[in-house]
Amino acid sequence: MTTAPDPSPIPNESAAARGRLQRKAGHVLYLAVVVLVYVYLLTPLVIVVLASVNAGEFLTFPPQGFSLRWYVAFFESEAFMGSLFFSLRVAFFATIISTALGVTVALYVVRFAGRWRERLRLFILLPLLLPEILTAIALLFFYYNAEALLRTLGIEVASGVFRNSVLGLLIGHVLITLPFVFLGISASLYNFDHSLEEAARSLGASRLTTFRRVTLPIIKPGIIAGALLAFIISFDLFNISLLLKGIGVATLPIQLFDYVRWEYDPTAAAVATVSIVITVIAILVTEKLVGLRSLRF
């Protein structure tokens, strides 16, 4: 056996002190970087909230006095309120459908897919990996062709049944949000201890009862976390909504986009703040129901 070369002589007092100082400086530097990241993330939010209570006529910063007039303008605007409720409705149904599909598909992929598992997983995550605008364009083409295809098959469909309707929009939102739900649920299924289900069966519970009484309650946090993300993301979708929304309706982000093209008053900031509040409420509800820890994947 060979011995390693003799290390440097025993460090003296001052070298040890210097080492401590260096470690401390490193630690402070590290904290500073983390703080900067948070500042970077949060500053726009703070500014938008401050801008929304601006008494002045324009989206300026710093604000000129305090006023809630832009909130009043928002709540009195039929276009904005209409699109807010439209967005909430779409997000609500997209979440429900995504969650139901997500549970079903995740169960299959994790439990029964066998050697196809990884491939199936990748497919369902595709909308997450592809640019949203591509998914939107693909869907739009698909809708055109699907309509034509149904007609040649002799099935009579109204013109624009997908393209110009809530149905088409909803399909798009489900497609985009499904991967998030899937990730949440499959993560909790991968961690699921199989013997719990067997214990339930051995105690006399049927497959269905076992699922209802044991599996579902245990993966519930994953489901709720996935549903929450789905809701927030659907509420926020822009590209896909722009391409797939019907004529004459608009989701909140699109309405907002339309608005800021022509106007430059703080109503936009008020709308943004309301969106933030809705997201925060969704997170608080989740925290109340299952704890924020379940948002870890």
Binding site: S195, L196, E198, R201, S202, L203, G204
Partner: peptide, 20 residues
Amino acid sequence: LPPENRNIGMVFQNYALFPH
């Protein structure tokens, strides 16, 4: 016969107590 109809009692190595 499925396990639930066999009237067995089973103890697992990791106990498999329902955590919820």
